[in-house]
Design a protein around this nucleic acid. Sequence first.
DNA 1: CGCCTGGTTGAGGTGCGTCAACATGGGTGG
DNA 2: CCACCCATGTTGACGCACCTCAACCAGGCG
Lengths: 259, 259
Amino acid sequence: MRSSDQARAMALPLFAGVSPRTTRELFVGAFLQRFPAGTTLLMEGDPVDFLYVLLDGIVELQGAWKHRETTLAVLEPISTFNLAAAVLDAQALATARTIERSEILMLPGEALRRTMKADPDLGFAVAEELSAVLSGAVRATKNQKLRGGVERLANYLLAHCMRQGGAERITLRYEKRILSSLLGMTPETLSRAFVALARYGVEVKGPEISVTRTAAFERFARPTSLIDNHLAEPTRPTSKVEREQGQPVTSWALGAESP
Amino acid sequence: MRSSDQARAMALPLFAGVSPRTTRELFVGAFLQRFPAGTTLLMEGDPVDFLYVLLDGIVELQGAWKHRETTLAVLEPISTFNLAAAVLDAQALATARTIERSEILMLPGEALRRTMKADPDLGFAVAEELSAVLSGAVRATKNQKLRGGVERLANYLLAHCMRQGGAERITLRYEKRILSSLLGMTPETLSRAFVALARYGVEVKGPEISVTRTAAFERFARPTSLIDNHLAEPTRPTSKVEREQGQPVTSWALGAESP
DNA sequence: CGCCTGGTTGAGGTGCGTCAACATGGGTGG
DNA sequence: CCACCCATGTTGACGCACCTCAACCAGGCG
């Protein structure tokens, strides 16, 4: 892998607090690759022993059972995936597929585990990342079990308004059929959920959605920091010099409001 | 905390590969406590900075939103919980409540984080534990989104047959109303799900359930290692001396077939 | 232009929740 | 010891949310 790529990778939140020495060690055997849209990177159940880092593009994580399939997350840069499997050297939890042309860094699991055991800072960083992803997964389960379809859509829209800087206008970066699967419904039901939100001022024109955040809409959606990540307060700054960079671990690799 | 308790705690899978020195350090400020049934240990959103270890009894993890509430997991010994929050020093993900009289070890989060940064073995062990819990959470999401209510119940029964040594007779250790919430349905629907499984030879008498694992039943439930933990192959033994004890990290703190 | 994919709209069915009535059993107090 | 009570579990009737199937529409591309 080229040194310019390596420098870029070392800037990842995951490796922010890790020494250059460890990072170099970690990148032995790593490689950066570009994939076209629609490429299946790994299938659930595969024993792929790599940690993946999405640097550019969009990746969908999905699971399947008995001819049914569902989207577990839609990842945008910068996100990691397959981290848990890499730590345990176990089978992949989900199928990963590029939605558009993507640039992906692949780190050998063996190197990751070996390096974690040598450098406690890396072990801690991985634990932080895993905790964040786990938090997202638990939020996703709550989202799915506690809210109805229209409520899930409403909170998805609010989350993405926040992500795009509190804007009232957002643009879907992927197809609605994928969004419907992420939200746990069929495309038809998603379509009807949008019309149900029209009375709150949600207007849809193709992938362009305008959301006027009325009081009634907020009251209906009722986002909460216990489910919706965008409301979670940053981990309170301990007086310790724990997170030197102050830079949060991003990549909420799983979760309803994933990207 | 008494030294006998400490010895017991040091035998936990989480601390199996960790040096006695580190373990002692970790247990400074730790304490062991008994709680009666029905005690709320922590509420979701609370900034409780402790790692909990359930040594005896049963604990329910639940989440709530807008007057609705759902059971996220039912923990049996030995399980950890609130680990992600302790690592991140963040708010708790779920409310924890004892279902029966329980014995619980509480470790200060500050000590955990400090010790993780000193001993890479502990950091790695925590990462393994988090990976296992994350795996459970992803399985739970798949279970919820891909299967119908009766299918979830069927696979729950199969999982617990395995847990109780492949028996054809299992005993529910907690109320059916909690089980129904864990499976994402109402008590009424659970009741009807049981009668729906009668045609496959499932008989229910109070908390006693007999499951004759007919081919038709297996074909209906169709358990898979990608969702149901009891089928997951143990992580293949790497030639490295990675998991010295060969002892698996247990405590699948979250997940559909949790205990 | 015609095809194909993705999205929308409509009609009808089903799974599951809601509400209500009833049964059962453990616990308490007379 | 029995009467009573309350919580849990079951059963039935009904309604709503969501899925299924089908027709239709719009845009992209050969």
